[in-house]
């Protein structure tokens, strides 16, 4: 049952890393003296890292997984990025000219 043991460990690592990253994100927001800009960057980075960790450890996406799944996720991220980025760009520009 070494197979099972290794997989068990993977879930545990995933959970622990996620917990750590979450705590880090909470900490920068609650701690005094961290500038808002810095805090946002750290929260964002911790979020992205945690998503990567969970994709790897819980959803088993990665080098050993089926390539298709990985491509699908990357492509989806590209399109979601285009839509979100485009929306923010357009609406900020609009907002800036509405005064």
């Amino acid at each position: 049952m070494t197979d099972a043991r290794a997989e068990m460990r993977r879930y545990a690592i995933g959970a622990i890393l996620s917990a750590v990253l979450t705590l880090a994100a909470f900490w920068v927001v609650l701690a005094d003296g961290v500038a808002r800009g810095t805090a946002l960057w750290i929260v964002g980075a911790a979020g992205v890292a945690q998503i990567a960790v969970q994709l790897r450890c819980f959803l088993h996406i990665g080098s050993a997984s089926k390539r298709e799944d990985l491509h699908l996720i990357l492509f989806s991220a590209l399109l979601a990025g285009l839509m979100i980025g485009g929306t923010i760009w357009i609406m900020t520009s609009l907002h800036g000219r509405m005064h």
């Binding site: 805090a39 946002l40 929260v43 964002g44 979020g47 998503i51 969970q54 994709l55 819980f58 959803l59």
Partner: peptide
């Protein structure tokens, strides 16, 4: 399982952008 893990991923987004981002 995929669904359930996926919901956690979305929640990470909500936590970061809505809650922590909103209060930072």
């Amino acid at each position: 399982g995929l669904y359930w893990h996926f919901l956690d991923l979305i929640w990470i987004g909500i936590l970061s952008i809505v809650y922590l981002g909103g209060l930072a």
